Amino acid sequence: MNGQRTFRRLTVHELDAWFGQHPDSLLLDARDAASHARDGLPGSLRLSRENQDALLLKTARKRPILIYCYHGRASQTWARMFADFGFTEVCDLIGGQTALAANPANPPGQPIPPELANWLAHQGFAGPDGRGAHENTPLMVAAWRGTHDMVDALLAHGVILNAVNADGNTALWFACVHGEPAGVERLAGAGLPLDHTNATGATCLMYAASSGKHDIVRTLLALGADPLIRTQDDFTALDMAATLECLELLRPR
């Protein structure tokens, strides 16, 4: 819509970095009064129809606003209202209080290890689950570059494993692009699905076969990747094999 302002959606793991960058932010809880009283985030103010006009009219437009609700749906409506009203820094929390409760090992306030924080800053990420070019996450970038210490640090911090980028690829795809079996094994062992299909219906095994990366094909097959999955164009990994080594590995026995 012409003239409509935008707002930003944050994950649980981006909260620390965001609060650190916006110490004067206004935190708004869009749930009912009882829920806010029971487990509202420290410093949060309950947001309702009764006080929305006062907040919209009396809050400085440049003051950062972060809104959360139960599941991250109502907060989007509220965030859009504040953005449309002219507030320049408006965010809402993906998953709301439910996402916070589901991540007890990494609640807001858990410090990011200095080495990881420095790496994230150098890469231009706002936090461990931040997004960069093409919607790539820090885990994707670390896997792509074979930066194993940062992969381990991100996994230990509890980043979202099933995140996908603009092409529908997970971090496991990027480990396959890097081409080191140990990196693939590390992410598969952490729980990334072997047979995830991207926006075109391709799997990591298909990519490895089409790229002639027989070591990665062998690793994925040993881990249990399914060679019979077909793309939207009805091709399997065998159909895509670019080298004799890949063909031999994928040929039915």
Rank of each mutant, 00 (worst) to 15 (best):
S44M: 13
I112P: 01
G130C: 07
N136A: 15
W18E: 01
G40F: 08
T59Q: 02
P64E: 05
P42R: 06
Q76W: 08
D39Y: 09
L56K: 05
D32A: 08
R73N: 08
A79R: 00
N136W: 12
T59D: 01
T59K: 02
P107K: 12
E50P: 00
A105E: 13
F125T: 01
Q52S: 06
Y68S: 07
D53M: 10
P113V: 12
W18F: 05
N106C: 09
H71F: 08
I112R: 01
Y70A: 12
Q97M: 15
G95T: 14
G109M: 00
L56Q: 05
N103V: 07
L56F: 11
E135P: 02
R63M: 03
L120V: 00
P104Q: 14
R38S: 09
L47Q: 07
A105H: 10
S75I: 10
R63I: 06
A101C: 09
A99M: 11
S35I: 11
E50C: 00
G43Q: 03
L55V: 02
Y70N: 11
A102Q: 14
R49P: 01
D129A: 07
R31I: 06
Y70G: 05
A33I: 05
P107V: 15
L47D: 03
D92G: 01
L55D: 04
Q110Y: 09
T98A: 15
Y68N: 09
F85A: 07
S25H: 15
D16M: 00
L47I: 03
T59R: 02
G109F: 02
N136H: 14
E89G: 03
A99N: 11
E135C: 09
A30Q: 06
P104V: 15
I65S: 00
F82T: 03
L66C: 04
Y68E: 06
A34H: 06
P128A: 11
A30P: 04
Q52G: 01
H22K: 00
A99E: 12
E135Y: 10
G95R: 14
A121W: 02
A117N: 05
R31G: 10
L47K: 03
G86D: 11
N136G: 04
R80M: 10
G124P: 00
F82E: 00
H71Q: 11
A34G: 07
S44L: 09
N118D: 13
R31Y: 11
L120D: 04
Q123E: 15
L55I: 02
M81V: 14
L47S: 03
F85G: 00
L41C: 06
D92T: 00
S44H: 11
A74L: 14
S35Y: 11
D39F: 14
A105S: 13
T98W: 09
A102V: 04
K62Q: 07
A33D: 07
F19Q: 02
A83C: 06
A17H: 04
R61L: 09
L26A: 02
N103Q: 14
Q123N: 10
L45R: 03
R31K: 07
G109S: 03
L93C: 09
N106I: 10
Q110G: 06
H122G: 14
